[in-house]
Amino acid sequence: MKKMILPVALGAAFAATSLSAATAGTLEDVQERGTLRCAVSTGLAGFSYTDENGKWQGFDVDYCRAVAAAVLGDADAVEFSPTTGKTRFTALASGEVDILSRNTTWTYSRDADLKFTFLGVSYYDGQGFMVKKSLGVTSAKELDGATVCIQTGTTTELNLSDYFTAEGMSYEPLSIETNTEGRANYLADACDVYTTDASGLAASRATFENAADHIILPEIISKEPLGPLVRHGDDQWADIGRWVLNAMKIAEEKGITAANADEMAATSKDPEVKRLLGASGEMGAAIGLNNDFALVAIKAVGNYGESFERHLGTQTKVNLARGLNAVWTEGGLQYAPPFR
């Protein structure tokens, strides 16, 4: 009698394991669900934050909306998940979200080791330092022995360690999880320096009561190409994300805006514009989308430059110049491959 136990149990167990269903492609999942699940940050002015109506806004958020518009035809069909630097990769890897759009730096190990596919660079950034003016510090080289606030699970903490080692300086790390905590510690003088991506520093400073009391030091110690990413293994889904981003950039190059997109689609003589906006060819079908996917996305959030200026540009509180993020024709690095 007892001898039977093991074989029976094993048999049942194997039967049970083989039951777990194979997952369909992400595109089908999203379409079936009717909403796109997009991970953003917990709150960073200009990039992703909730406005007074509780609606998500920002540069990273716009990208999620553009993808939702392209895939589902509805820019509001997005479920946003706020993630910290630490939780974002687990959220994406576990399939809790379909796409991650959260100031995330494209690095070798995130690509090859963490098994994510980066879809392009939506913002060329670099790591900087912010200090209070009253400290009298004017260069990062004077920071020996300082206490530094850093967000855990970021490239920031790795760069910081590299930089101080290379400069032969020491520091005391104070590791915090979110930008909000970092702000609180920095303002209470629990740390002398706050370090993160320069865009993040500008965004945080914009929300300080006395922004003028804080300076961002001239040193930029790293390259931080920020962009959206998806899991390895679903090339179609990666292509969709990549080409929505590219479409936004091409639109800026070609002068297509949210306001004139319909008109351009109907009247433009430029063959690339017509292909992009679905007025000629069968381009959308190749990635499983409608032919006008880019048109719908651009109508929803505008082109790359419009989104930038709306949330981060010099007319906003964050007040960032285009700099490296201008399109290549204007001296920047934003250069999308041709749409053909």
Binding site: I5, A9, A13, T17, S20, T23, A93, R231, H232, G233
Partner: peptide
């Protein structure tokens, strides 16, 4: 015993399969 073992096997199988799927 069968139920407990199946659950354990299912968890292990699931983990192995998903790790594999993620490469």
């Amino acid at each position: 015993l069968v139920v407990a073992l199946s659950v354990v096997m299912m968890l292990i199988g699931n983990a192995v399969e998903n790790l594999e799927a993620l490469g």
